[in-house]
Design a binder for these strands. Structure first.
Lengths: 242, 242
DNA sequence: TGTTTTCATATGTCTGACAATTATCTATTG
DNA sequence: CAATAGATAATTGTCAGACATATGAAAACA
């Protein structure tokens, strides 16, 4: 079956789109083997390089995997959470860093979503997630910790909070919001007093989650949101003044 | 400057990763022109096909755009919301459809996030978004509407609700959650009574948003969540019984 | 000065070749 | 007969070189 393409536009993009659509609508199920490169050449009436460029596009989106050898080929890949997380974080991070999204907007989005998560986390938290949260709080209190390491620990703390909700879809959706904030947070230099304040709020939050107190957790998150905004304001206005 | 690669692994993937890292960490700023394909060949000591496959991988992630001609080349692309939306929706949809995420989990994630959005939407809604919501409610009431069209309108309604919060980051994050549900919703056949119930709740929700009544909006969304789950339950148990 | 032509440069595509990997078949040998 | 070693075929990965096409800039010309 020959598939027609528009010769004036990018051929490899068109081929990739055709195959991608087939994967999304289920025509090509998971683990199905695509035709070999040579067969695709014939089907789309293009050269092998063009077919290969199309396949690489799909591989970049984790839609296919390839195997060499006799029974090899390109196979529809089951999109796993790890790959999806990675893509989501890359996209979210770039979206924020390239579009000069102001800190307040990103911050609002992040804490709004986290607050939505907190009631579920309070209800379903396991000792495992609580231990992670406590461990990160401890790390945040260590002296000599760099700002970057402090931010990284902050992200880990909040990821644990989200994961405690035990809903992988929710975790996936929030991964972008939480992780993408890190580069923005890294622009802030935290004073010792700032850190103390954050650590105290983190402790309050962990306690509230441990006690399954959703109302208190929400209150703490609101405070954390406004404190974070205030710190950012201080830093940015000071920087603008110079 | 020659960059060393591991010759035993996929060369084009390594080259793509190297350039991607440079874009993410800001070494290559937006609109910067990458070296020409020939120059990249020399830099990585590979053939042009390999370089091109690497560039196509980056293009698939909307990280670069290419231009032909004398002053052409590959340029770091500013990731815009439209591209980010599209990628997010593709990834989310596939994640749900390929991993047999059960309806309840996906539904919980979606409504949890939407409920987080509702207070902001109630505060900031404009006549524009309200009009979209009302228009979709009207469409949902038309007789002879297919299940698919009903679901599509449902998605449009909820997107308008989310967009009313006027936080593009939030809209982006929720796009995945809301749109990815559509294929799952399409598996449900709605009875006329189901539709009436949903339309009534949508109307209540639109009214609550119009009156800036966040508490009422949250209540309606909770009801909508449990009703949706109940409908899905009915359908799936009936289907399992056959 | 304004227009057309030419040219240089870059990506897009094609062809053909060889390398590397791997499952399967085949022959050999104990 | 069974186990092993080797040949074989299919498939992706990489390379080299060519031509097509698009496009901005310089050169030639009116």
């Amino acid at each position: 079956m020959k598939t027609k393409l528009d010769p004036s536009a990018d051929l490899s993009a068109q081929i990739a789109a055709a195959i991608r659509d087939a994967i999304i609508d289920g025509t090509l199920p998971v683990d199905e083997r695509l035709p070999s490169e040579i067969e695709l050449c014939e089907q789309f009436d293009v050269s092998r390089s063009t077919v290969r460029e199309a396949l690489k596009r799909l591989a970049a989106q984790s839609l296919i995997r390839t195997q060499r050898g006799a029974t090899g080929g390109a196979f529809v890949k089951r999109l796993n959470y790890a790959d999806a997380y990675a893509q989501q974080i890359t996209t979210s991070t770039l979206l924020l860093s390239m579009n000069e999204v102001d800190f307040a907007t990103a911050c609002e989005a992040r804490f709004t979503l986290e607050r939505a998560c907190a009631p579920l986390s309070a209800k379903r938290r396991t000792p495992d997630h609580l231990a992670t949260m406590r461990a990160e709080i401890h790390r945040q209190g260590q002296i000599g910790l760099s700002d970057e390491a402090f931010c990284a620990s902050d992200v880990a703390f909040h990821r644990a909070l989200v994961d405690a909700a035990h809903n992988p879809v929710l975790s996936y959706q929030l991964a972008g919001a939480v992780e993408a904030m890190q580069p923005l947070m890294n622009m802030i230099t935290f004073t010792a007093r700032d850190r103390d304040k954050i650590i105290r709020l983190h402790t309050d939050l962990a306690n509230a989650i441990e006690q399954e107190n959703a109302v208190e957790a929400d209150r703490v998150l609101q405070t954390l949101a406004s404190e974070t905004n205030a710190m950012a304001d201080t830093v940015f206005t000071a920087r603008a003044g110079r």
